[in-house]
Write a protein that binds this DNA or RNA. Structure first.
Lengths: 223, 223
DNA sequence: TAGATTGTTAATCGATTAACAATC
DNA sequence: TAGATTGTTAATCGATTAACAATC
């Protein structure tokens, strides 16, 4: 095989989507799927599907298509889901608690092993059996446990300092929920969620549609 | 001006990011910024910034750059933030509650006016003064109030039916937190969040890095 | 075998970057 | 004025789509 050419981020971001659709097919007991069928379901071209998958290897068979279960597993491997990443949540506010209660991540192989906060009222309490610890214990905990990913759900102004502190500990990935772009002088991979950005894009699209409707009405009236 | 050419989604998705950086500059009392300076801050090319902004109009001035406050307001207008969108949350589970408590959206002009659920234990209780109502009252509420956006935080298997029900009411936008792509036969704009997709992309990147490190070690050993 | 469908190359399309005249 | 920086056109780059030989 040799060294594979770097796969573009556009392709990577489609992988979880393929994974979801294949999971759906599995649930429906469909054992094989062609790029054409998948294309119709997903609303992207069959060509793109074949191109995307061939970044990682030839998983299909001429005249047959793709075996759903095999492809599902392959994409899981590509995504590294079998690495059984261990995560901690930093900041047990509303969002931190919501994520701690979200069992879907566990199904995808991301295991929550610790929650941290500074609020004395909640320290010692548990979410799904996982104790909320004081931030003072963060360094100790990380040195005693394999922690791959830190989920940052701390208030805006505390995000940079907490992110810096986490990155120093050698944690591999940061999943950031603060509406700011983190830049750190460490070798840590950052994935931002930026919920409000997503909401604003929705706002933009609605606004466009309203403008179009208003424009259409005006044109009609001016006739 | 005439009809402006359709702006690509890639540009749109950068707008909230510009908006955030301009808000930062405002907070620092910086009144003007050149595309070059902004480029350095944001880590994208000055050329792209100028191209992006010129999709909407010439907001800058030769030799000077851009007035931060004016540009901030312009982008807010483009995003339609002054429309004062009214939102409801459907599904007051952990995620619904977290979003209901998130005051940041209000600052961006998205106002929460209702929360819906089916759990009798929480119906009648309030979050930030907003009552949690039974789903039975959804139709009545929407006909009596201007509701622009529905935030969907219902369990996976209930998402399609609830989404359909909401879309029938003429709500303009759906902000969907379920890990599925909604397709609806109505004229409703859908923005998906797909948190687990984002987490899986982080997992992929970490996996890539681990593989690279292992590869490097192997090469070293085999020398 | 004949039909279906892949993997892959080539063509097209669109987005990003570079360059520079216009002008503040 | 001289320097800075925009708006915009042209060049480049990369991603998507089309086409088709290979082959199951």
């Amino acid at each position: 095989m040799g060294v594979q050419k770097k796969v573009s981020i556009a392709v990577i971001r489609r992988l979880p989507r393929y994974y979801r659709y294949l999971a759906d097919l599995l649930r429906m007991d469909i054992t094989r799927v062609s790029s054409k069928e998948l294309s119709a379901r997903m609303g992207i071209t069959a060509s793109q599907i074949r191109q995307d998958l061939n970044c990682f290897g030839g998983f299909g068979q001429q005249g047959y298509g793709y075996n759903v279960e095999a492809l599902y597993k392959e994409i899981g491997e590509i995504l590294g889901l079998s690495n059984n990443y261990q995560t901690i949540i930093i900041g047990a506010g509303h969002m931190g608690k919501a994520l701690a209660n979200y069992t879907n991540f566990e199904k995808r192989g991301f295991k929550l092993i610790g929650i941290f906060d500074v609020n004395p009222e909640i320290i010692g309490t548990k979410i799904r059996g996982i104790e909320i610890m004081h931030m003072d214990r963060l360094e100790e905990f990380v040195s005693n446990n394999k922690v791959d990913i830190a989920i940052l759900t701390v208030p805006y102004d505390q995000t940079p300092s907490v992110a810096d502190r986490v990155a120093r500990l050698g944690i591999k990935g940061l999943w950031n929920f603060s509406p700011m772009d983190l830049k750190l002088p460490y070798d840590v991979i950052i994935e931002n969620v930026h919920l409000s950005d997503s909401l604003m894009v929705l706002g933009y699209k609605i606004n466009e549609k309203l403008k179009a409707e208003k424009g259409a009405k005006k044109t009609k009236n001016s006739k």
